[in-house]
């Protein structure tokens, strides 16, 4: 599934936090390459920096030092406005707790990223319908999040993540709040998006069963990656 073209390149990446007088290094000198079409599961113990890494890849946090390159361009040094535009164009986010807008219907939630594009109202509606169709939620388009189950909400969240056709999907514990059966359905959907639509997916998870859906598993431990090969 993966090809040779590098989508992400992390160079000598460090992230440190200051707590009082103490400086804590999450990782130091991390190097990594993610190719277009990868489906990577990032695993590791709590506090190992999985979510921090995902934040850096998604352009919502900045490294203490080092570089984050996306398609050969640095994104770690972009201003907030440019970074917001970069996120809107290139990254789709899937949260553990879905984070749908409670006042909006499923379709309106999915349409949110398209408000940042120049698409016409009709084009947006068509896109929303397609995205909901991909995740099997067309018949729930008019429902509000409170009227949907956890699994259905996560499907809507996935539709929202893919509707603007981003190059990468960043998922943080996307099945962490779901039962096994529903989690498997969600993971199958992600696998489908990776295999059929070629979406690059980077998923943080604690769950080995969830990680098994990914093409690559990376274990983050003490600021270093340990890659577990897969057939």
């Amino acid at each position: 599934m993966t090809d040779a073209s590098g989508l992400y390149e992390l160079k000598n990446l460090s992230k440190r936090y200051t707590r009082g007088k103490e400086t804590v290094a999450i990782f130091d000198g991390l190097d990594m390459t993610i190719s277009q079409g990868d489906f990577i599961a990032i695993m590791g113990p709590s506090g190992s920096g999985k979510t921090t890494l995902l934040n850096l890849l998604g352009g919502i946090d900045r490294p203490s030092s080092g570089e984050v390159l996306f398609e050969g361009q640095r994104i770690d040094n972009l201003g907030q406005g440019k970074l917001a535009k970069w996120r809107a164009k290139n990254a789709g986010f899937i949260f553990q707790f879905y984070n749908l807008m409670p006042t909006l219907s499923a379709a309106q939630n999915v349409e949110l990223p398209l408000l940042l594009t120049n698409l016409s109202g009709k084009a947006r509606k068509d896109r929303v319908k397609t995205a909901l169709d991909i995740v099997g939620m067309v018949d729930r388009a008019g429902h509000r999040p409170a009227q949907l189950s956890g699994g259905q909400q996560q499907r809507v969240a996935i539709a929202r993540a893919i509707v603007a056709d981003p190059k990468v999907l960043l998922a943080d514990e996307p099945t962490g709040d779901l039962d096994r059966t529903t989690a498997d359905e969600i993971l199958q959907t992600l696998q489908l998006l990776n295999k059929e639509l070629g979406k690059t997916i980077i998923m943080v998870t604690h769950d080995p069963a969830a990680a098994s859906y990914a093409a690559r598993e990376l274990h983050l431990n003490k600021g270093r990656f340990e890659e577990k090969g897969k057939a």
Partner: peptide, 14 residues
């Protein structure tokens, strides 16, 4: 939290 989500999706601060 919702504002943070909007920002994550690409809505600019202004």
């Amino acid at each position: 939290r919702e504002i943070a989500v909007l920002k994550t999706l690409g809505f600019t601060a202004p």
